[in-house]
Amino acid sequence: MSQFSLYAVISMLIFSIGLYGFIAHAHLVRKILAVNIMGSAIFLLLISAARRDPTAPPDPVPHAMVLTGIVVSVSFTAFALALTRRIYAETGQAYLPETEPAISAQKQDIVQK
């Protein structure tokens, strides 16, 4: 198994863990974390794919794509977290309406006020 295969397998497994987390967790911060884990897996794949031939110098194009990707994922994370804060400010919890867990009567009272 070459070095690239090892990284490729690991990154795809990490991606699946992120995907599972994204679907299984209802809390929005956990969802954002899960998407970031998926993104990191892709970066790992791209970085390792840049040097599939260990004797040759690494391919600069995937490296540049990862740099671009990191900035985009930071932008996404910041915006998603800001949206979550806004949702929390509006509803008192960090869940989407469809997935929110049963909230206590007391809390519901606060939200309605």
Partner: peptide, 10 residues
């Protein structure tokens, strides 16, 4: 496994 990357273009 044979990289056909863009390094040779760059």
């Amino acid at each position: 496994q044979e990289a056909t990357g863009l390094a040779r273009v760059v």
